[in-house]
């Protein structure tokens, strides 16, 4: 007990300014905080072609959905002028076409000039060096929207919930039903910079 008493006689650290110090730090962190998380269109670039590998087999014409954007931001879909608004619809028709009948969840009308099945369907996007970045993103967005809508429908039919609310394996399953294949051709310079 005697020792205790001795200890107590040591001067205590004054904690009165602790709140002030904490406030100072707090204000610093409030000012330095950026809450915005980055968001955007996540994509994967194709790897560089390997010179040792043989070139990939030619894809049948009917399985390619061609989207061209020129230097004046004009869009050509499958050889015809198109507006931004119509891309999604025609992409869905193309992907969901079910030409060879192997896709039992597709609702397409089995046109002879559109894709065999969603697995074979490839969207080829080609732009000019003079295309504006904004237009490029809009077109990418529309194509993505087409896939998202197809996946959503499939997910609603199968699991009864939206695609984005699915977890792990289920989401992978839907993704496999409609694999996103957007190929970007090697850039061309037609219209100039």
């Amino acid at each position: 007990m005697a020792r205790r008493r001795k200890k107590r006689s040591l001067p205590q650290i004054n904690a009165g300014s602790m709140a002030d110090i904490a406030f100072l730090l707090l204000i610093f962190f409030i000012v330095a905080t950026t809450m915005d998380t980055d968001s955007g269109l996540l994509t994967k670039l194709p790897p560089m072609p390997d010179p040792d590998q043989p070139p990939p087999p030619e894809i049948h014409d009917r399985n390619i959905f061609q989207v061209l954007v020129n230097a004046n931001d004009e869009i050509l879909v499958e050889g015809e002028w198109a507006g931004l608004a119509s891309i999604q619809k025609s992409a869905i028709l193309f992907i969901d076409n079910n030409g060879d009948g192997s896709c039992n969840y597709c609702t397409g009308s089995r046109q002879p000039n559109m894709s065999d099945n969603p697995d074979k369907a490839v969207i080829s996007l080609q732009n000019d060096r003079g295309t504006s970045y904004n237009m490029y993103i809009q077109v990418q967005n529309e194509l993505k929207r087409a896939y998202n809508e197809l996946r959503n429908t499939a997910s609603m039919n199968k699991f009864g919930i939206k695609y984005e609310d699915l977890r792990g394996d289920n989401q992978r399953e839907i993704r496999k039903m409609y694999p996103m294949k957007i190929s970007e051709a090697e850039p061309k310079n037609i219209g100039g910079d």
């Binding site: 980055d38 968001s39 955007g40 269109l41 996540l42 994509t43 994967k44 670039l45 194709p46 790897p47 560089m48 732009n127 000019d128 060096r129 003079g130 295309t131 504006s132 970045y133 904004n134 490029y136 993103i137 990418q140 967005n141 850039p187 310079n189 910079d193």
Partner: peptide, 30 residues
């Protein structure tokens, strides 16, 4: 990328990333 930028320079950057095998990209958009 600013939305007024032309695709030329973007394509060049993308090619450079492909060469480096940095394939996961994100086009930052609002």
């Amino acid at each position: 990328i600013d939305k007024e930028v032309k695709m030329g320079i973007v394509t060049d950057v993308k090619q450079e990333l492909r060469k480096m095998n940095a394939l996961k990209i994100n086009y930052s958009t609002k």
